[in-house]
């Protein structure tokens, strides 16, 4: 700079202008950038790195979600039962409403916000490809959902060990519950993410996701209840394929110690439940990637 005063066109006082310094340091590749985006997204899902107000909902939901596990812990310590009053796999079904609200309310934070405010164009103008962006956002929501699902299992497991229950049995049951939780997290993340990525309005995304998850589950449960009453549990079995929560319940009944109305009764049906769960998750992820590729070239 030849003329230091040119930096202050309005004559504002500046102590000293160092001039422009080029950056000569490291430039990381797409993998590192995607990881940074996923970490930021994970923090944002819990309101971290955002305004104080946005931390309230996720943490209240997280506390509500852990509350039963804490109660169970207290009961175990005080009374000393010889088995957990609620099984690991049952827990997610018990708190499914809280879980649904969490996923529905935080998916728009990761997927709708950038579309709504146009920030997406700044991401796309950077080295990250549209599909990698979608994957990083998806991974962030998946991790946040997993925290929600796995924390209670860890807590219950710790309580069980402190209560000197059989370690082998508890580890096996907790392991199955973790596998089921991963399947559930995959499908919830996929559905909520896909809905949010198609909606620039947060409210719409929240309502639509809750409708699909909770109302869908309500309808399936009603059908299962009626079919069980009428002695046509095969109808209920098929109906269970149509909602993430009923798929989870069905598999949890088959694989763990959970009671459901019309669980899959044959090995083939079990496999179909698992297949639909995984296939739906994969389809949603594919839809997300496709969606952002389209946004990029629009």
């Amino acid at each position: 700079m030849t003329d230091p005063t040119s930096a202050t066109p309005e004559g504002r006082s500046v102590i000293h202008d160092l001039g422009y310094r080029p950056y000569t340091g490291a430039r990381l590749g797409e993998g590192s950038i995607a990881r940074a985006l996923a970490v930021t997204g994970f923090r944002n899902a819990f309101g971290l790195g955002r305004s104080g107000r946005s931390k309230v909902l996720p943490f209240v939901l997280l506390a509500l979600n852990l509350f039963p596990a804490v109660i169970v812990g207290g009961v175990m310590v005080l009374i000393g039962l010889d088995e957990l009053p609620i099984s690991y796999a049952q827990y997610a079904s018990t708190t499914q409403v809280i879980l649904g609200i969490f996923v529905a309310s935080q998916a728009p934070v990761l997927f709708s916000r950038d579309l709504r405010h146009g920030t997406i164009s700044l991401y796309l103008a950077r080295p990250l490809r549209a599909s990698t962006y979608a994957l990083a956002r998806w991974a962030a929501l998946l991790a946040a959902t997993l925290v929600f699902l796995l924390l209670p299992i860890v807590l219950l497991y710790a309580v069980a060990l402190l209560g000197e229950l059989d370690v082998t049995e508890q580890t096996r049951e907790a392991g199955v519950a973790v596998a089921l939780a991963v399947l559930l997290a995959l499908v919830l993340t996929g559905i909520a993410g896909l809905i949010s990525s198609w909606s620039t309005r947060r409210g719409f995304a929240v309502v639509a996701t809750i409708a699909v998850l909770l109302i869908g589950n309500g309808i399936v449960t009603a059908v299962q209840g009626i079919s069980s009453e009428e002695g046509r549990s095969d109808v209920g079995e098929v109906a269970g394929l149509f909602s993430p929560y009923s798929l989870y319940r069905g598999l949890a009944t088959a694989w763990a110690d959970v009671d459901a109305l019309t669980p899959p009764t044959s090995a083939g049906m079990e496999a179909l439940y698992a297949l639909v769960l995984v296939g739906l998750s994969a389809a949603c992820l594919g839809g997300l990637v496709w969606r952002y590729r389209r946004v990029a070239s629009a």
């Binding site: 340091g25 430039r27 990381l28 950038i33 940074a36």
Partner: peptide, 9 residues
């Protein structure tokens, strides 16, 4: 960071 700069930089 989204352009590849490490956090501190």
């Amino acid at each position: 960071m989204m352009s590849g700069l490490p956090r501190v930089a």
